[in-house]
Simulated scan of single mutants.
Amino acid sequence: AEQEALIARLLAAGLGPSNAGGDDVRNLMLSPSAGIDPQMLFDTRPLAAQILATLENHPRFHELSAKFAVQLDGGEDLAMLEHHHDLWLSAFVRHGETLLAFGLAGCPGLDAPLAAVPLGQGLELVVAVLETFLDLATPEQMRMRHLPVDNVLSHLRLPLLPADGFTRPPSDASLQVGTYPQVQKNQFYVAALAPLGRLDPTMLKGAAQLASDYGDGTLRFTPWQGVLVPNVEKPHAVTERLAQLGFICSLGHPLARMIACTGSSGCAKGLADTKADAVQLAALQSGVEVHLSGCPRSCAAAHTAPVTLLAVSPGHYDLYFRDAAQPGFGRLHARTLSIEAAGALLRARPRSNTDD
């Protein structure tokens, strides 16, 4: 009974699907600054709501893999562009008209689009691509990367435009933390990180209270394991309180560039306590983005970090440096390092060799 009551409250707060069958397929990524980012070409939220409703309420789409994912990019300055999606749509302007370029099994930050559609046909495009995927895919072909791109395009029953003129400027990583002006006059958003992705009830309640007291009562979560408080007129007070609650409010914080998966404390596949080891490593070095992964699956990072520590046993890691010529984590530099040894090595190494 307690579980049912909790589920009912979560659904009433909008934190669940409109029907159980649609839960696993609600994988739609937007910028956390959708609708408020000064660089946005359009407000993605209304179209996103239509796409989500279609995913939830169209029974055939419930056949999609729980990992099948869609990205809708409105050109925001704050955006996760390195995460590969099965279908991505990214806005650009040509001859005064806003169009949506799109690609399959890739991302707007790295890959060229296949074609484009007018903005008003965004939902129609998503539906057509998903229907085509389900028409063509065998049960073993669960992701878009398993199908030939030309085969998908040739079966789309939708007029497509060339994507000539599409460019997607890189997102600004520094915007993940700090205070920034919104497109709305005299309004700001405040972004902060949860240390190693850990939020406790006090932190969450405190952030919610700040959103109510200084913003519009809403909180946004970010792809960088942080929170964003939008529509704020007095950002300094919000930042001060977030820091008191334990949030990271500056990129200079030792944990600001540290990524760690759940690790052995919460995952059977984890070979080391990555969260605890990351805290220890942060005290030994700073300035370099380091990813601690408890196993080769790399669940905590969709991109390859400049430095990766791959667990081999409790408290010991193989160290990799990102290398465009090497797949996966990059170039193996040292094996079976303790956290102390890894920290000493990173401190001694010039930053230009560990971070692009």
Rank of each mutant, 00 (worst) to 15 (best):
H95T: 07
T304V: 13
P327A: 02
A116V: 05
S174M: 09
A344M: 13
L281K: 13
F166K: 06
Q225G: 02
A341F: 03
A276M: 01
S286Q: 15
L110A: 09
L292E: 07
R349Q: 10
P113C: 05
D216L: 08
E124S: 04
R331W: 01
A324M: 13
L114F: 09
E131Q: 10
L193Y: 01
H291C: 05
Q39F: 11
L332I: 09
H316Y: 13
Q141Y: 12
Q39D: 13
L292V: 09
L160C: 02
R26V: 05
T138V: 11
G21P: 00
L10K: 12
G165V: 00
V279S: 09
A272C: 03
A101P: 00
L100K: 06
L6K: 06
A66D: 11
M40C: 08
G96L: 08
G165A: 00
Q182C: 12
T308G: 03
D216C: 10
A34M: 00
W224C: 10
P254F: 10
A20C: 03
M258F: 12
D86H: 10
V238L: 12
P314H: 08
V127L: 06
M258T: 02
V312S: 07
H62G: 05
P159E: 03
G14A: 02
T138P: 01
A66G: 08
A348S: 14
V232N: 03
A91P: 00
I259Y: 10
S90Y: 04
T132E: 00
H62W: 04
G35F: 10
L245I: 13
A272L: 10
T44D: 03
A79H: 04
G178K: 14
Q280K: 09
H58I: 03
